[in-house]
Each structure stands twice: as C-alpha cells, then as structure tokens.
Write a protein that binds this DNA or RNA. Structure first.
Lengths: 213, 213
DNA sequence: TCCGCTCCCTTTGTATACACTCGAGTGTGT
DNA sequence: ACACACTCGAGTGTATACAAAGGGAGCGGA
C-alpha cells in the first residue's frame, strides 16, 4: 500500500470517528511526522480529503476539518433522499428479484443480530451494507453510484453523532426490509416511497438524539 | 495563480475540448515539461482530474483520459435528470420569483443571440449559465449544488460531441424559459416536469448528432 | 490607549534528486 | 525453434531542500 493511501485512510478514519474534531488544523509537517511519512504523499492525502469535503483549505493556515451543522444535516438528507429514492426505484426496475428477496429475509431476522452483545453491531451494519451494494449493482449507473458513494462518507460521520440504540436499529431493519421487499416486487414507486419513509425516520432520529460537539 | 491550478485548468480544458482524446496517456515528465512546471504540482492537478472522473490511473502506467461511451451518456443524463429535476423543484419552492421572471424574459429573447454571428454563442451560453447559477443559489443546498457541479464537467464534454445548430439552441432556449417560468410561478412539479422534458430533448439531440470519435 | 505598520516566523508551494516497481525486450539454454 | 530468465529502462512513488507568501506579534506613533 502506498504511503499516501495509508495517510488518506488514517486521516479519513480519524475525521469520521470524530477523533479529529471540526476546526482542527492539519499542518503538513505535524501530520507527516505523526504518520511517519513525508510531506509529499501527505499532501496528496489532504487533497483527496478536501475533494471529498471532509476538509477545506483555510487560506495559508493549512487545511482544517470541516464542520457539520444541523443545516448541513438537513441538506445532506435532502440530497440523500433524491439520490437513494431514485436508486431504489431504478433497482426495482432493473434488479434481480431473488437477490433482494434473500436480503429482505435476512433483514427480517436482523433483530437477533441487534440484540447480540456486539456493541459495534458489525453483522447488522454489514447486512445493510450488502443491501446498499446490491442496489448499487442493480442500477448499473456508475455516475449515480459515485454520487451516492461520496455522500456516504458524510453520512457515516453524521451517524456517529447519533445514539444507535437497539430500538431504532430494529425499526430501521424493518424499514430496510420494506425497501428490499419493494425492490424484489419490482415496484419502483413503492421502493421510492419506502426509501423516503426510511430516510425521514432516520433523519428524525439523528436530530432527536444529536450530540452537540 | 498556483502552478498546480494552471496545470489543472489547462489539462481540464484540453480534455473537455477533446484535444486530449480518451485513452491518451498523461505521462508526468512529458506533461510537466509541456506546461513548464515541475512534476509535483502536475501530480496534484492529475489527482484532481482523476477525482473528477476525467482521467483514471491505469495501474502504474500513468493516468489516461477516460472514455465516454453511449452508455455513459445515458447514465449521465439519468443522474442529471434526478438532480436537476429536484433542483428545479426546490428552486420553485424557495427561489425569488422576480429573479426567474427576468431570466425567463431574457431567455424568450435568446433567439436573437443565437442568430448572431458569434460562432461560440457566448452570450447565450452565459445566459444559460446564469439560470443554472440562479437555481444553485435558490436551492441553498451546498451538497446538491456540489453534486450538480461535478456532473456539469462531464456534460460540457458531451456537449462538444453534438452539433449545436441554431435550431436546437432556439428550442433549448424555449425549454429553459419554460423552466424559469415554472420556478417563477412557484410550481415545483411543473418545474420538475419542464426540466425532465428539456433533458430528454437534449439527450435525444446529443444521441442523434453524436460524432463518434 | 488604540490604531497601524513592519518585520519575522510559520506554513504552504515548488523543484529536484533518489528509490522502487513493473514491463518489455533480448539473450541463452534446452 | 521455443521458453524461461535476466537485464535494462521508462515511469511513478517518496523524500528533502528551497522559495514565497501569509499571518501574528511587537513596536512605534498619534
């Protein structure tokens, strides 16, 4: 793995996990020494982070970690609703039914995973990730997939702000199952509606349990 | 202006104007010498181009200019319809009516601009650009604006493939005027419908007059 | 005491030198 | 004659040295 990739992954992780808080200045020499690499690959990593919107160049003062305000969260979900709603509709038109039927069945059994003692709920998040991947594959539109992928980075960051209690996750699993069900049934409008519903509930939850930083 | 910005702008222009054709390899030493800068800022420029999707790294063999197939154009417009349709609807909800009324009036007079002998039709394209900018400002959603901005780069490139005859531009101006009219009237669904219509016509025109390369 | 100017220092921007990897081409052995 | 291996080279990846620019602190004047 290239040094610039390592630096990119490390910084991205630090920002998403809120170990590097908004406003933190990422000075080149400081970070390059911390990560044990030179400035050149670090600069490339910072460029990528800035292109993604996780950092921004603060004229002459280095790059700083971007903030996420409540307004940003609203904007984020507005775009998310647009993209994922359409994605779900397209998946319903083009996707393979059996794939999404299996995912639906797994999602209906998800409460068992959520109840387990794994605090990170890796299995459940992996399952949701597989649903996302299945939708991505079904729509076969690289530009749309790319747009959603760039959104997910910010969404993971936002999710870390909210308290992922078992109650909400159980409800979310049912909502995801509804989406998978609609896609499997080949019903685009239903799939879009289910996605809209899920995202509104998700946004409400985030705003309700939002931890100010 | 920084050297890396200069290199980025120059290469971006070359790719969009099809002076650098798909598949062309951009060797670092070669391009840095051509542009009169060193490899370091050039690499940053190439990183940005790759992030935008105009180039792609061909495993150790330098970066190459990406291709745009007919399938890509379909995908591009599918995403464009999603984003710009929603943008028009949001602008209708949140935009200032007088701003878009003025733009509508100007667009209705656009055929005069198109008839002028300026082969580049700078005035007309400037006017359409101002409509885009007005929509961007009206929706006040930086994430959505960012997503559309990253799309427009590819769209400009596609537009260069089509023959922008006066007839199509006149029709497009009328379609744009209809969008502005719907936004000014504060009718989101109408604005979205007008946008959908315009994009379908635009796509048909591109595919009909497509110049294979 | 407050405003403004200047100087210095910190930090980024650029250039260049070095290291390493991948691939092609050639030469040799069977 | 064919196949395998070795060498050479082109090109990227990384490190470091140098240049330039912007900001902050300190000093001086009003």
């Amino acid at each position: 793995m290239r040094a610039s990739d390592k630096a990119y992954a490390a910084l991205r992780e630090d920002i998403i996990e809120w170990r590097l808080l908004p406003g933190a200045v990422l000075a080149e020499v400081e970070q390059s020494e911390r990560l044990g690499i030179s400035r050149t690959p670090l600069r490339e990593a910072l460029s990528r982070l800035t292109a993604e919107g996780l950092t921004t160049t603060a004229g002459g003062r280095g790059v700083v970690v971007t903030d996420i305000s409540l307004a940003d969260i609203d904007e984020l979900f507005e775009l998310r609703e647009t993209l994922e709603g359409r994605a779900a509709a397209l998946a319903a038109e083009r996707g393979d039914a059996t794939t999404f039927e299996k995912l639906r069945d797994e999602l209906l059994k998800a409460p068992e995973l959520i109840g387990a003692d794994d605090p990170a709920r890796h299995d459940y998040y992996g399952l949701v990730g597989r649903l996302d991947a299945a939708i991505d594959a079904a729509i076969s539109n690289s530009y749309l997939v790319q747009a959603m992928r760039s959104l997910r980075v910010h969404l993971v960051r936002v999710r870390r702000l909210a308290a992922d209690d078992a109650e909400r996750l159980t409800a979310a699993a049912a909502e995801h199952a509804a989406i998978a069900e609609a896609i499997a049934a080949g019903n685009p409008r239903l799939a879009e509606a289910a996605t809209t519903l899920h995202l509104h509930r998700s946004l409400s939850h985030v705003k309700a349990t939002h931890i100010p930083h």
